Computed example of a mutant assay.
Amino acid sequence: MNRKWMGRILLYTVAIALVVAAFFSLPYYITKPGMAKELEPIIEVEGGYEEKGSFMLTTVVMGQANIYTYLLAKISEYQEIYPLAAIRSEEESDEEYKVRQLHSMSTSKLAAIEVAYKKANKPITYQYKGVYVLSVMDGMPAMGKLEPGDRIFQVDELTFKSSEEFINYVGKKQAGDNITLYFERDDKENRVSLPLKIFEADQTKVGVGIGLVDDKDIVVAPEVTVETSDIGGPSAGLMFSLEIYNQLVKEDLTKGYKIAGTGTIDSSGTVGRIGGIEQKVIAADKSDAEIFFAPNEEGAADSNYLAAVQTAKDIETNMKIVPINTFEDALTYLEALQEKEE
């Protein structure tokens, strides 16, 4: 075989190896700074007030590593590498992880609406729709029959309003008993009969092997629409609540500033820790945010706030980092803020 053909074979081999390496996933996830996204275009309160400035959520970009992205992250200052187990358990499929992230966003959105409407003294009620399947356990009757994202709205003859009612009903039965589940998937109603089985982890309990949470809608007046189809996770809760509240009240809390931030929120208005705070500070700075709200975690030594302050110092931004423990903290800061000069 002449050298010309040997060279071609070597070239083809290298090319194939490079392509394979690009598609070969490693057991790591890579995160890097995402963007800061204005909330006014994706949140609309019916008849809501307009604002001069803006509230913005911040994001990180995350994906499973291949050889190239792993090596790049190793030499990049603001890219982080996480082992697979730090993001999702070995038993959790990609689909289950995606469903969990979307449900976390949905729960965060409901809490943000509740906090904002309560503060604005607007009426709130809940409409319960059943239970939402988050995961399906291997070796249990539901495997292959139910999927993450299914909404169960009836078991046998019982229509229920919470996961607690569902669990109590099933818990009174015995291993080997059959139950019929009525559920919705892709806007179509289905039903399946399954035998109950004892859980290996808890021999005192029986079930079909699903992880579940309440599925409910919040009913408010005026109506609010929050478009989150391309956003996952709970970290936008605080900023959601501020944007919704700002559209509900006459006073413009932005005072003309671009205000970014992050933090989970619960129905009591408590702001919680999130991941990727350093990357979110960078995303906010790139979008010219002037103020950044960071979870203070009641002054914890390793709080998101302190990490955000350090990152702001490292990148030499003029963006002001503000510690936030609660929704009320954010309102207090904004109400005392001077109007931005034109």
Results as ranks from 00 to 15, higher is better:
H103V: 02
E189Q: 13
M62D: 00
Y49E: 07
K32D: 07
T107C: 12
E297T: 05
S235C: 02
D217A: 14
K129R: 03
S25F: 10
N190A: 15
V20T: 08
V249G: 09
F24L: 07
K286D: 08
N2M: 01
Y132V: 02
D285F: 07
G47T: 03
M1I: 04
D329H: 05
V220R: 04
R3T: 15
R88S: 15
T262W: 02
L181C: 07
A201P: 05
V133G: 10
F24R: 05
E200T: 14
G233C: 06
P123K: 09
L26Q: 00
N304L: 03
N66M: 06
I315L: 08
E335T: 14
E298P: 01
L181W: 03
T69H: 06
S241E: 09
E251W: 14
E341P: 03
Y182H: 05
L242A: 11
P148R: 00
G207Q: 03
T159L: 04
K188E: 06
A300H: 11
D314P: 01
V192G: 13
L72T: 08
V131L: 15
L72K: 07
N190V: 09
L72V: 10
I152D: 08
S106T: 11
V170D: 04
M56K: 06
I291T: 11
Y68G: 04
L57G: 01
Y78V: 02
D150R: 08
I291C: 01
T58N: 06
G63D: 14
T125F: 13
T13Q: 04
F166T: 00
N168H: 13
I259W: 08
K280T: 05
L196A: 06
D285P: 05
G7N: 05
F293R: 04
F183D: 11
I231G: 03
T326M: 05
E223C: 10
A36F: 10
E184F: 11
Y126R: 10
S108R: 00
S93E: 13
K216V: 09
M143F: 12
E80Y: 15
L39P: 08
Y245K: 01
I152H: 11
P83W: 07
K250Y: 14
N178Q: 13
S162D: 05
K74E: 14
K340N: 09
A120Y: 08
P234L: 04
V19H: 14
I291K: 11
S135G: 10
P148M: 08
G275F: 03
V14A: 14
Y97P: 07
V208M: 00
P148E: 01
E38I: 06
E290A: 10
Y97N: 06
S287F: 11
S163R: 12
I259N: 02
A300K: 01
K161N: 14
L110Y: 02
K173Y: 09
R151G: 03
